[in-house]
């Protein structure tokens, strides 16, 4: 497992916070996903060994929580809420527009490796539905026009980086 020294330090720090090592499974997975971008199988086995568990115990946790990814995603993660309020106010249209803008289907990585579009469950901003999170930033009332603006912005930022 090739983790950054900071990640390893934080892992060492977090484990003793729990009465039993097993309880540190979730925080460790979060730290690893933050570092690597997803949870490779190797990480499952690494966490198991570190917490004196069997790999299947960690694998169960990883597959239970939708926020843990077992495959790499694009550099930018577009998360469209599809729970009730957002769904009623056009979340599907929003999601489909993102998919068209980046030529990608939900759950997949765009050809240039830039974007992954996903549906997620309620982002706790139902009053301003439909809402979208791009990486850590929340965007409210994302109708088709706003979707196109946001997409253009992502493309601009990508161009600026290259």
């Amino acid at each position: 497992m090739n983790l950054k020294p900071e990640t390893l330090a934080r892992i060492d720090e977090v484990i003793p916070h729990y009465p039993s090592k097993r309880s540190a499974t979730l925080p460790l997975l979060h730290l690893i996903q933050e570092d690597v971008g997803y949870i490779p199988q190797e990480a499952i086995e690494w966490v198991a060994a570190r917490l004196e568990l069997q790999p299947i115990n960690v694998y169960e946790v990883v597959t239970f929580y939708p926020m843990f990814r077992q495959k790499p995603i694009g550099r930018r993660h577009v998360k469209v809420c599809r729970t009730l309020s957002c769904a009623l106010l056009g979340a599907y249209r929003t999601c489909e527009t993102f998919e068209r803008e980046f030529g990608v289907r939900r759950g997949e990585v765009s050809a240039d490796g830039e974007v992954t579009v996903d549906f997620v469950e309620c982002l706790a901003s139902c009053g301003t539905a439909p809402v979208v999170m791009i990486d850590d930033a929340l965007h409210e009332k994302v109708d088709v026009a706003r979707t196109q603006e946001l997409s253009a912005q992502i493309r601009r930022e990508a161009a600026a980086r290259s």
């Binding site: 199988q41 069997q54 790999p55 299947i56 115990n57 694998y59 169960e60 597959t63 239970f64």
Partner: peptide, 21 residues
């Protein structure tokens, strides 16, 4: 020999053996 478990818990809970074991 703790190799079995439930993955994708929820409506699709599936009994499985750890991949590779």
């Amino acid at each position: 020999d703790d190799v079995l478990g439930f993955i994708d818990r929820g409506s699709y809970s599936t009994l499985t053996c750890y991949p590779g074991r």
